[in-house]
Amino acid sequence: MSEANLLDTVEEEKKQYIVVTIGSEQYGLDIAFVDNIVRMQKITRVPKSLPHYRGVINLRGEVVPVMSIRRKMGLEDDVFTKASRIIILKLEEQGNVGIVVDEVKEVVSLGQDDIDQNTRNTNREDANFINGIGKNGDSLISIFDINKVVDESDYI
């Protein structure tokens, strides 16, 4: 085992997550996938697109599709407030995709020990998009499985 490998393992122990609120719950997004966080702006509706896509926005000259995670999880539709943000995810396959969240709270570092992976006890609709529950002090954070969130293979 060389030194470089040891360093890697040390760094891999903790991952950073962006904590957002959607409804009354807190969700975590792996920071490695997050390209950008932008304020709410005018979203242009795209006719005949998938129902959970709100449309497209102009992100500094690029056209980026924006998805409503609430619609995808079957929650009630977004209400845009001053705190609403669009989180731009950078994905290898799909390129950039934005998701709408109610509020961005903070960035936390969680180790594997802080994340409970055995949370198969729910039958909520959004359970499919969660791959663990993170414990940060007293609060619980549902960690999104980003690839599942943006996976459209069931729709197309």
């Binding site: 795209v46 006719p47 497209v56 000259g61 599709p65 799909q94 950039n96 995709v97």
Partner: peptide, 18 residues
């Protein structure tokens, strides 16, 4: 401009512009 793969599955709209 292209609209990104995820939303680009409709024939009626050929692209977007700013």
């Amino acid at each position: 401009k292209s609209m990104g793969k995820v939303i680009d599955n409709n024939k009626l709209i050929s692209g977007a512009t700013i």
